[in-house]
Every structure is written in C-alpha cells, then in structure tokens.
Amino acid sequence: MNGWLRVSIVLLFVAVSPGDVLRADQLDAAVGKALFDRQWIPAPASTKATDGLGPLFSSRSCTGCHSRGEGAHVVTGDDEKPDIAGAVVRFGKKDGTTDPYYGLQLQTNAVPTLMPEGHARFLPDLKYNLTGPALADGVHTSVRLAPPLFGRAAFDEVPDEEILKRAVPGDRSGDGVKGRANVTAQGIGRYGWKAAHVTLDDQIAHAFAIDIGLSSPKMPFPYGDCTKLETACLALPNGESPEFDGREISVSMLGFVGSYIKTLREPGDAGDFPGAAIFAATGCADCHVPRLVARDGRQIPAFTDLLLHDMGPLLDDGVGEPGVKSSEWRTAPLIGHRLPSEQRRFLHDGSAATVEEAIGKHCGEAERSRNLFEALSPDDKKRLVEYVNGL
C-alpha cells in the first residue's frame, strides 16, 4: 500500500485534525487500528478496501474477539445466561488433520445467501450444532479462546537462541519438565496456542483468513476456511484486488495492524514480591518465565518460555496440529489480562473459571508444580492466585 492510500485510510477512518502531524510509526499504528476496527463487508463492494468478508466467518472484525485489545471474556446473552465472547470451536484429529467438510473451525456466520456451518454455546459446557453433515470419523472438537493482545507483539523480538536455551530434550533436573520449540518450515513458532506461527504478521494473517475470511500473501485463501466440499461457498465472489498484492489484505496492511498491536504494551513490574517468590518456589516460573531477553538486550514481560510442554490427559482435547500432539501446549503467557476476574476464563478452552481450577488441570510436565501448589497453606495459595490475577 503506497503512501497516499495510507493517508487516505487514516482520513477516512481515524479522527485526525488537519493541523495534526503524525510520525511515521504513529501513522502506521493509526492505519492499523482502523483496519483492526474495520467491520468488513461481503464482496463485491464499491470500496475495495472494505470487502472480502467470508463467505463463511466467525467475526466481521478483529474487535469481535479482541475488543479494546482484550481477548475472550464472559458476557450475558439475550437469554440472560452467561457465555464466552471471543471463543471458537476447532475441529481436528490427533495428527493435526482437519475435518474434510468443515475444515479447521466452525464458522458460525455467513454472508447473505449462504448458511453458516452451525452455532455454538460455550458455557457451562460446549454445545454446538452443525447445519451440514456429521464430522468425519476421528475428528474431535475443542474450544479456543482469543488471548489478550497486550504485550504479545514483543515476542517478535525474542531471538531463537533465547527460546532454544530452555528447550531440554530430557527431564529438567528431575522435575518432569522438558519443553521443546515448535520448529516449523518457516522457523521457530512463537504465536498461537501451539506456537504454530513464527511472527506477529503470520498470526495476524492466520486470524484474518480463518476468523474473517480475508486472504493475504501469507494466507492466500480468498474463501478462508471454506473447503472444496463447500461448493456453495466457493461459488461466491471474493474481494481480491491488484491494489492489495492481488489479495484482500496486502502485506503492508498486515504490517499496519502489527504496528497497532505493538502499541498495546504491557506495564512493566508485576509487583507483589512475596507472591512472586511463591510463584517461583512452586516451579511455576520454570515455564511461565517472567521475562525474556529481546534481540537488543531488553528484558520484556512474558510469563512464558514460548515452548511446547506435554500437559497430560486433563488438557488433551484430541485436537492436534501438524507436528504438535493434542496434549502439547505452548506455555500460555500470563500477561495482559485486564478484565475483572468474574469476566475471565482460563486455559485454551475456558474450562477453568479460576486460577485454582486451571492449576488443578495441570498434569504431565506440570504435575510437580500442581502438587507443590496444592501443598501450600491457604494464605500462600491466596497470595499466589492474587499474584497471577494481577499480571
């Protein structure tokens, strides 16, 4: 996207006074926020910068799952019952293959003339219906929560060696913890519940394609998650255009959204040093590493090692990804949760309502830490939980 188009988007979507002068990085972030907030519409449309939605999709915008930079959260529906906004249903087998008809994800919305793939509720437990055929044999379902975005962009700045130095082929000091990097064809993964995406741009492109149905040079799929068996989806128009690298989202547009996400910074010190000491003593900090070293030597808040760990049977949902077992998860970053505790859910699927419940499901490599937590006094448990809730 060239300079004049970038400025045009800012003037169209962002309130900028004529006398204001923005630096290049501020301008990029302003364009990124406009794209992040954009309510996309189906193709064809008179404004090419806004069309290409779906045809099947989970959300019309990034804010649909990440309102104000936050992630999934509990809301009260029209029926006055709680449910999770910003959650999706994933389909897959243990080996990472997806459903031949529905693909990777249940798409609960569709453009006019097309039926959505189904609908879902997430609380108190996952319940969903399908408008098409049953899932293929061996395909499992699971929930994935959208994470908060505060502080996440900094993981782009973590060098490979900082991740690999904590990856241990065998047991770490006899405590059961191993950990391995997700080494993909593109490099070492940092983003996603299973570290499938190497860079922030990769993660953004994946979200645009799978959640909204917008193609980009990194994810050249103008029909999003629509499969070859969903012929009605494939028969509809798309919004690909020469102005956007031949796709619906250009490389520049991905970068602009990344520039906006970089403004969603994590405040530095987590405070509560007694709570931090208990967090370390129970072994939580072995994987939820408080700080990682960036390429320029800065220490960035993280509370993750960006490694995959086998978390045992209680967190094995049967949905693997290529090269990653269904029981393996990238250590979840604990930073950036700014919602009140009653609006939060924990773990990849939101199956835990509290920190205590989430710890209780830690098995496999984390079993020792779970046992150490359970052995704490009530006061120390309370302090550790308050510490985690405050990150």
Rank of each mutant, 00 (worst) to 15 (best):
G151W: 07
P274E: 12
G239H: 12
G187Y: 06
P55F: 14
A281D: 11
V293R: 10
G320S: 06
F208L: 15
A352R: 03
F244D: 00
F279G: 13
H362E: 10
V319Y: 03
D99T: 08
A167D: 12
L104C: 04
I261K: 11
A146F: 11
G187L: 09
S341T: 12
R368D: 09
E230F: 01
K81Q: 12
P267F: 05
A270Y: 09
T98S: 12
L56F: 14
R345A: 08
V319E: 07
G283I: 05
R368G: 07
L308W: 00
C284E: 01
G151P: 06
T76E: 11
D305I: 02
D272V: 04
T108P: 11
P220W: 00
V10R: 10
I204D: 15
R60P: 12
R368I: 13
D79N: 14
S341W: 04
H206V: 07
G246T: 02
S241M: 03
S215L: 08
S67A: 13
S58F: 05
D83A: 05
V21W: 11
G336I: 06
S241E: 11
T331V: 14
M311W: 00
F150W: 15
I249N: 05
I9R: 15
F346V: 05
L126F: 02
C65T: 06
S46K: 14
D245H: 04
L384W: 09
G179Q: 06
L229R: 09
P313S: 07
R60K: 15
P169W: 01
G138A: 03
S17Q: 14
G312D: 01
Q105H: 10
R60H: 13
D316P: 01
Y260M: 04
A167V: 08
L114F: 09
V75Q: 05
